[in-house]
Design a protein around this nucleic acid. Structure first.
Lengths: 344, 344
DNA sequence: GTGAAAGCGCTAACAG
DNA sequence: CTGTTAGCGCTTTCAC
């Protein structure tokens, strides 16, 4: 490995001079010296050791993105957009894929605490990691939240979106389209429903159903793992041997499950949208381009990313400004999977 | 930030003792000392600064993954599987999303050269970055290639897969299913075809077509950007005003385009698979669960990831062992998009 | 203009 | 058993 020492030795100057020149520091160095340094750096193919510079100057010009997975297309999209935005601002992005596992989330947060990244954007968070979040809030390091519920009292910048409201909007829409029995397919939300529990999204769901006179019971929660295969299995099991579908409206928690759900219904001999209707969250391109395009509660990914990027950069610039709270609205995009009249 | 100095001061010992204890170094330290150190570390919520340890001991326990994007589901899958494998082995994974941009690829490779990661797995590479690859080969740092063509003379561990052969296999399959005019929709491959050029995948494609008596001309290359929207546009443009499809077989370069292609055909009034058949690469779950399941040339992602992980760990352990060359076979999975008799 | 020197936080060889 | 010391490669004052 070529170090500053090498280039100093060869160019015939001190390493501090070499450092100054190569970092373009505003100081008066003779033309010849400067050229000589640049030249030998070029010849030796010198690459500064970032670990060492990070240690010396206490920053990394890297922002972390804490994300549950990239297998769900919407997170892939978030990640790529953030990448683009931060690259433009001279920051690298370092994804931390946490798979909903608290120990990984903790590890990611530790990276911030250890100054491995200058800031962290949390695209989700779990309650189990509260300690770390509080600690980060005490340490006053830049943490920016994308959140779906009110993030309680933590003094972070937050970009809030109305995902949970979507359960109400989609339920109302399905009811408007004539559905009488609506199920929720997914993980956490569905399993709370199945066991008679409550939560913010379920509150919206139940209120919407109640307003339209639709009964909601634990059987409306269809629990499945995150993936088309698991969703297919879960719904197939439910349809087995039935001549009519057990539900005529399905709210599916993620794009990662919606095609499994639809295929299970089709394979069971039911028709979408005539007999059963299905809707989901996040407007991924597959939802638009599937042979049966899917109705979605669409979060404005691009704007959210802009807000996240901007908030992060602002926080980095002004560590002591008061926390910003931003909100974003989703839109209902109606497609064929819930409306026979749509061609798309 | 709490440092070793703090814990040494409070526990009443030298920082080196604290370092030894906290790293579980095999050395004889008195029980009380050890306990005191652990205790104060716990109380102060000490987190070692990884930048500093990396600098001091010259490794990061991190492996980089150079990847074109995560928006294409197959790369998302690669990334998540590698994540899992390396986490189990005690290594962190750091994705470098390069968007097919040489400057980003160079930056990723520089991270290896600068020892920001202990090893790098290149999921693809571009010719423009040859310099860096040669330099890495000289520096003898661990770089593992996943490649689709013979990687020339560079002495790296390689995991080769037969993606290019897929163009031949899919063409033969489409011909067997009765196709007479086969198009290739995509980026590089399609545009070379469109301008009459040649390449390894095109070689396979042309040979297969020739063997079945199918004519191939520049019009068979349908160029589109990476995404369903672009693919939809490109194919729609081609179909506009036509009562019969211009092609009866489509080989689509990526899952990221195949739904756009299919929807364009459907919207133009053509039927899949009756009038036009379509096939692609990578067996993503959306291909299985789309209302019209898609025929694919399926790379064995799981095995490849296992091989990549293992090769990387082996290389890290034995930096001087001779380079390993591994090969993996894909399989043709025939589904409804090319075969009317399939239900899936 | 340029060099000497201290220091970022941690590790590891060497003493004692 | 534990402390002293010398780095890792770079940045940044402060002198000359």
């Amino acid at each position: 490995m070529i170090t500053l020492k090498d280039i100093g030795r060869i160019a015939g100057c001190d390493i501090s001079t070499a450092s100054r020149v190569l970092n373009g520091k505003p100081c008066r160095v003779s033309e010849e010296m400067r050229d000589r340094i640049h030249e030998t750096a070029r010849q030796l193919e010198y690459l500064p050791n970032r670990t060492a510079s990070s240690l010396a100057n206490g920053n990394t010009r890297t922002v972390g993105v804490l994300i549950p997975n990239v297998f769900d297309g919407v997170y892939a999209e978030y990640l790529e957009r953030l990448e683009t935005g931060f690259t433009a601002a001279g920051y690298a992005v370092r994804p931390f894929i946490c798979h909903n596992r608290p120990e990984k989330e903790n590890a990611a947060l530790d990276s911030l605490l250890r100054n491995e990244v200058d800031a962290m954007i949390a695209m989700y968070y779990s309650f189990d990691c509260r300690d770390r979040y509080e600690r980060i809030s005490r340490s006053r390091q830049p943490l920016i939240f994308r959140c779906v519920n009110e993030i309680e009292e933590l003094p972070f910048d937050t970009v809030r979106m109305d995902l949970t409201e979507g359960y109400g909007v989609l339920a109302s829409h399905l009811a408007d389209m004539g559905c009488k029995r609506i199920a929720v397919v997914g993980g956490s939300v569905a399993s709370l429903l199945a066991c008679g529990g409550n939560s913010i999204p379920l509150g919206y769901f139940r209120a919407a159903c109640k307003a339209r006179g639709i009964a909601v019971g634990p059987e409306c929660g269809i629990v499945s793992g995150d993936g088309q295969d698991e969703a297919y299995e879960a719904v197939s099991r439910l349809c087995k041997g039935k001549s009519a579908p057990p539900f005529d409206g399905m709210i599916v928690q993620s794009t990662n499950r919606v095609f499994g759900v639809c295929k299970a219904l089709l394979d069971a001999g039911f028709r979408i949208p005539e007999t059963v209707k299905a809707a989901t969250f996040s407007d991924l391109s597959v939802c638009r381009y599937s042979p049966i395009p899917v109705t979605v509660w669409a979060q404005p990914v691009e704007e959210i990313c802009r807000a996240l990027t901007e908030a992060t950069l602002a926080r980095l610039e002004h560590p002591d400004s008061p926390p910003r709270k931003m909100e974003f609205q989703s839109t209902l995009i109606i497609r064929k999977s819930t409306n026979p009249e749509r061609n798309a």
